[in-house]
Each structure stands twice: as C-alpha cells, then as structure tokens.
C-alpha cells in the first residue's frame, strides 16, 4: 500500500468531512475554513486525481448546473481501501506522538 502524503491527507479528510457533496469548491472551502490553508482548485484536483489512481478515492460526474454555466460537478468519495489506509497512517502517527505534548493525543 502507498503511503499518503500530507497534502493528500488534508484533501482526503476534507472529502470525508463534506460527505456526499464532495467536489472541488466544497473541498477547497472546507480546507480553507478548518485547516486555514489556501489551496488552489488546480492543486486540489491534482491531489484528487493522484488519490484516484492510488484507488483511495473514486469519482463520478454529476448533472450540469446552471450556476456553473452548464458545467457538471465531479463528486469524490473515499473507498474502503482509502479509509483503511488513512486509519493505518493516522494510528501510526498517533503511536509516535503518544506521550508527547504535540496535540495529537487519543481522544
């Protein structure tokens, strides 16, 4: 299994946060609000398509909408494998951070 980079983690978590409605602008907004990081849509899509080739997310095209000038949205969803990979990585992180005051204690 591939490891997931920092940027990938961020995007992946944002997709999970937004649930069924995860597409570019929504993901971007989530990252902006929660992580205070300003990523461009290009960067987000680049990351998402990398995740997709790793099998961590899947995507499908929605219906074209008028407020987007008749352009369709592409919705992203995390796969089961993606979820496992994330858990694996985060638990490794937590294990390493245990006992250190870095703000990553188990809840």
């Amino acid at each position: 299994m591939d490891t997931i980079g920092e940027l990938e983690q961020l995007v992946l978590l944002a997709v999970m946060q937004t649930g069924d409605d995860a597409y570019g602008v929504v993901v971007q907004t989530a990252i902006r609000q929660k992580a205070r990081r300003d990523l461009t849509l290009g960067t987000i899509y680049k990351t998402l398509s990398r995740l997709e080739t790793k099998g961590i997310v899947t995507s499908e095209l929605g219906e074209p909408t008028a407020e987007r000038g008749g352009r369709a949205k592409r919705y992203y969803r995390v796969t089961a494998a993606g979820r496992r990979a994330l858990q694996h990585q985060l638990s490794a992180l937590r294990a390493m951070a245990a006992g250190l005051d870095v703000g990553l204690e188990a809840p």
Partner: peptide, 16 residues
C-alpha cells in the same frame, strides 16, 4: 475528464 469539473468550479468560485 476534468474540464467540466474545473471550469465549473472556477465559475462557482468566481461568483462566490
């Protein structure tokens, strides 16, 4: 494959 998604997002972002 990403043309619609990106262009649409740009439009949406710009409007917002």
């Amino acid at each position: 494959d990403l043309r619609d998604a990106i262009a649409g997002d740009l439009v949406e972002r710009f409007a917002a």
